[in-house]
Amino acid sequence: MRMILSAAVAALMASAALAEVTVETAQGPVALPGTPEKVAALDLGVADSMMALGVTPVAVPDKLYLDHLQPLAQSAAPAGTLQEPDLEKLAAIGPDLIVVANRSAVKKDAVAQVAPAIDMTVDGADLIADAKARLAGLAALFGKQAEGEALAATLDGKLAALAEAGKDKGSALVVLTNGPKMSAYGEGSRFGWIYEVTGLPQVDATLKSEANHGDAISHEFIAQANPEWLFVLDRGAAIGADEPSAQATLDNELVRRTDAWKNGHVVYLLADNVYLAPGGYTALTETLDALTAALSE
């Protein structure tokens, strides 16, 4: 009888070991007991990539912001803001796993009181590599490796097309507006990956590569730097703030003298994609498409 029980226990242990899933996260590999059925995605980029893989989260942030995420409002429960997850709502939903990233990453320990939690943050300075790694990690988590590989191949194709479009197109400056205020970002910074994927060098070598909030700049700075391309992100538009638009802020006599303005090379990117869903598959590919289209004209 004991031998039979031991064999049964051994079989169960072997089955459990086979079911275990190892996921690469922002903190390294994490072993999970199996494929979760109910996952709360407390980051828009994570929710975006899950949708691309054909997986619907059971819970998401209250505000989804991005147009292509709006269908989740009908299928997933709201569970607080990006910065403040609602633990009571999460407990009522009862997820098997909670995924945090970027803005919600600081709440990982708090939400882990409700269910196991993993952090899938992407680093803006190395966004493309991190986005690919997180996509592969989510694909492994949900047993969607084939789908993940297909999406990664499509992403690589878009990156190649953008690199080709950006050849010999001159210098660039990445600017974030926040109402009347402006910040510029250099290579290696939060939005420095835009230089990387386009192949366009930053116009001013003095920009801080480590500046998460960018360098505060003026219209005079843009005029003196005179970039051949301006890539613009409107923070106010991304979060729905009632403040002057990026177009209004940049429409200045000094900026109008730049090569970028005179040649129609001021590109207003979908700021909600870049600002709120870094690394999200659809958000990222839409941005790559927009950059390719602009540089191909």
Rank of each mutant, 00 (worst) to 15 (best):
L141Q: 08
A136V: 06
A246Y: 07
A184L: 06
R256Q: 15
D204K: 03
G170N: 09
K167Y: 03
L200V: 10
H265G: 08
K167C: 05
L207E: 10
W229R: 12
H213G: 15
P244G: 11
D234F: 04
H265I: 03
A161V: 02
R257I: 10
L135D: 00
G143R: 04
D259K: 12
L151G: 02
R235G: 09
A205Q: 13
G192A: 08
A152P: 01
Q202F: 00
Q224W: 02
E228W: 00
F231W: 13
E220H: 07
W193M: 12
M182S: 11
A139H: 00
T249Y: 02
D259G: 05
W229T: 13
D156N: 13
M182F: 09
V175H: 08
V197C: 13
P227A: 14
A184S: 12
F231K: 13
D234S: 07
G143I: 02
L135F: 06
E220G: 09
G137A: 13
L162F: 06
H219M: 09
F191M: 10
A246R: 04
A160G: 04
T258A: 12
A172K: 06
N263C: 03
L155N: 01
S189E: 05
G148L: 02
A140K: 14
T177N: 07
L135V: 11
D251M: 07
I239N: 04
A160V: 05
N263Q: 14
A140V: 14
A184Y: 04
E147V: 11
T177C: 08
F191D: 10
H265M: 08
E196C: 08
A205H: 08
I222F: 10
R190Y: 05
A165I: 04
P180E: 12
E187Y: 03
D242G: 04
V255C: 11
F191S: 09
E243V: 15
Y185R: 05
D234I: 04
M182C: 11
R257F: 07
E228V: 01
V267Y: 11
I239T: 15
Q224C: 07
Q224P: 03
V203T: 15
W229F: 11
E253P: 14
R134H: 04
L141P: 02
K262P: 00
G143M: 08
L162R: 05
L230G: 12
I194M: 14
L151T: 03
K132I: 12
A133F: 01
A237C: 07
I194D: 08
K132R: 15
V255N: 12
Q247E: 15
E187G: 12
V203Q: 12
T206V: 07
V203S: 14
D259Q: 14
K144F: 02
